[in-house]
C-alpha cells in the first residue's frame, strides 16, 4: 500500500508536468507564433487604438450606434454573467418590461409585437456581441436619423453585415454589433468628408 502511495505521488508529479506545463507550453508557443491575433484575444484596432475584442460585446447606448442586447454583466468583460432569472420570476418580467420600454422609447413608432426577443432579453454571457437582423433593422430609422444618413443606406449597411448560419444549419442569422458600428462609423466618415 505504501508502495502504491509512493507510485501515486511520483506519477502525479510527472503527469502534472506533462499535462500542466509541457502541454500548455506547446499550445502557447505554437499559438503565439502562428496565430498571435486570435491567441491574444482578437483585439480590434480602429485608427491605431484598441477599441475592443471582435467577439466580445460592448455597451452601446448612444442613439448614433446600433445597440446590442441587454447585459446582466453590463458588458464587463472581466465578470461575465447571465441574469439567471427564471421564466416565472416576476423580476424577469420587470426587467424585460423595462428593456422593452427603453427600446420603444428610443425607436418611436414601434409596437411591442415588432420587437424581437433578443433585444429585450439578456444573454448567457452578458457579452453577446450579436443581435438578430430584425433587431438591427428596427434600429435603422433611429441610427439613420442620429447620423444624418439616408435610411436606405443604413438599411443596406445592415443587410451587408448579416452573417448566415454555420453550414446553413447552426446558430441564427446575426450581426456583430461592434463590426456593424465600425462599418457605420466608416460610413459616416466617408459621407461626411
Amino acid at each position: 500500500m505504501i508502495r502504491h502511495t509512493w507510485t501515486a505521488v511520483r506519477l502525479f508529479v510527472l503527469m502534472a508536468i506533462l499535462a500542466g506545463f509541457i502541454y500548455p507550453a506547446i499550445v502557447l508557443g505554437i499559438s503565439q507564433l502562428t496565430m498571435a491575433y486570435q491567441a491574444n484575444g482578437s483585439l480590434v484596432h480602429y485608427h491605431g487604438r484598441v477599441v475592443g475584442a471582435k467577439m466580445i460585446g460592448q455597451s452601446f447606448t448612444s442613439p448614433k450606434f446600433f445597440h446590442g442586447r441587454p447585459s446582466a454583466a453590463d458588458y464587463n468583460a472581466a465578470a461575465s454573467t447571465a441574469s439567471n432569472l427564471g421564466p416565472s420570476n416576476p423580476a424577469l418580467v420587470k426587467e424585460v418590461k423595462a428593456s422593452l420600454a427603453l427600446v420603444l422609447k428610443q425607436n418611436p413608432g414601434l409596437r411591442a409585437s415588432q420587437v424581437p426577443m433578443d433585444l429585450v432579453t439578456s444573454s448567457d454571457s452578458g457579452l453577446d456581441p450579436n443581435i438578430s437582423p430584425q433587431a438591427a433593422y428596427l434600429q435603422v430609422p433611429r441610427v439613420a436619423r442620429a447620423n444624418g444618413l439616408p435610411v436606405s443606406v443604413v438599411r443596406a449597411l445592415v443587410t451587408r453585415n448579416i452573417h448566415g448560419r454555420f453550414l446553413g444549419l447552426y446558430g441564427e442569422p446575426r450581426l456583430n454589433v461592434l463590426e456593424l458600428n465600425l462599418a457605420l462609423v466608416s460610413l459616416v466618415k466617408s459621407n461626411g468628408s
Binding site: 441574469s83 433578443d118 444573454s123 453577446d128 450579436n130 443581435i131 446575426r174
Partner: peptide, 10 residues
Amino acid sequence: GPNLEGIDWR
C-alpha cells in the same frame, strides 16, 4: 418569440 433569456444569439 423563443425564450432568449440566458441564450447567446450566435
